[in-house]
Amino acid sequence: MILLVLVAAALVPVVAGWTGRHRVLAAAVATVLLAAAVIVRVVASVSVDQGVLGIVASVLAVAGGSVVTTAVFDVIDDRSTDRTESLEAAGHILRGGTWVGALERLAVFGSLVAGMPSGVALTLAVKGLGRYPELRSGDRPATAERFIIGTLVSVLWAALCAYVATGFAPLEAARVSFDA
């Protein structure tokens, strides 16, 4: 039950982060709650309705990943003095990034929950090949950097949500041997 509560509670700051105000704080709180859910999944025996947990975790994977990824870019942009290299500037080159990211997280989450980790590689290959022309012809190297950072943050978030929803067999085996 505590696992479901943690995952559902992580949706609260995610919704708050969608407004744009205090996005970095909202992402930090959501990340702490997701990390707590991962820890509970690793060290405790979990008995929860997998269907409900899966639905809540999938929403957290897609919506939360957007808030967390954007918050990471907010931090990067706040530290940058060159506004031509901002997330907004990169967004003019890589249009549709919000939708691509949401679909990427959904594909990564779905692949891992379905027990097909090769789907993650396929998703990343399709995304990379689809964006290759814009990244190759871009005059701004920061656009490629933001593409890589955004992809890694997004995939990591979706993978953690998938682990919380189902538990991966190798990590579950490690948990059993850890308990012994």
Rank of each mutant, 00 (worst) to 15 (best):
I2N: 10
A125N: 03
A173K: 11
I148E: 10
A36F: 06
A159L: 06
V29T: 09
T151S: 12
L135S: 00
A174G: 04
A28L: 15
A16H: 11
L156K: 03
A44K: 08
L4I: 00
L11C: 08
L124P: 02
V100G: 08
T70H: 08
V176Q: 06
H22Q: 15
V62S: 05
F73M: 14
L4F: 05
V155I: 11
S45Y: 13
L160R: 02
V40F: 11
T151L: 09
S111F: 11
L33E: 05
S111W: 09
I149D: 07
G64M: 01
V46G: 02
A35H: 05
Q50R: 13
A169C: 09
T143P: 01
V176Y: 01
M1K: 04
V100D: 09
R95Y: 08
V43N: 05
A162I: 01
D139I: 10
V38G: 01
S86A: 00
L135A: 08
L103H: 12
F147E: 00
G20N: 09
E145L: 13
W157P: 00
L6M: 10
R146W: 03
I55S: 07
L124S: 11
S45A: 15
E172H: 08
V29C: 06
L103F: 14
V126P: 06
R105P: 10
F73C: 00
G64K: 05
T84D: 11
A27I: 04
L34F: 02
A174I: 14
A37T: 03
V153F: 03
G51E: 06
P133W: 07
L103I: 14
P170M: 05
A107M: 12
S118W: 15
G119Q: 02
E145G: 15
L122G: 14
G167S: 11
R140Q: 13
A107T: 15
R95L: 06
R146S: 01
T69M: 12
L60M: 09
V24R: 03
A125G: 15
V52T: 07
R105A: 12
S86W: 00
T70I: 04
A90S: 15
V32Q: 03
G54W: 00
G54R: 06
A71E: 03
L87M: 14
R140L: 12
I39K: 06
F147G: 02
A121Q: 07
R83W: 12
R95Q: 14
R146D: 04
G97I: 04
V48D: 01
G65L: 02
A27E: 00
V14Y: 03
V5R: 10
T70A: 15
V108T: 13
T81D: 10
E85D: 11
I39M: 09
F73D: 06
R95N: 07
R105E: 13
A61Y: 02
S118F: 14
A125K: 04
V120Y: 05
R131N: 12
V43E: 07
G20I: 10
L152G: 08
V7T: 09
A28H: 00
T69A: 14
F168L: 14
S154A: 05
V52Q: 04
R23V: 06
F147H: 04
C161G: 02
S47A: 15
R175Y: 04
M116T: 10
V75I: 12
A158I: 07
H22F: 14
L171P: 02
L94E: 07
A102V: 03
A61N: 10
V75S: 08
S66T: 14
A107Q: 13
D49G: 01
P133F: 09
A27K: 03
A16F: 11
R21C: 11
R23G: 02
T151G: 11
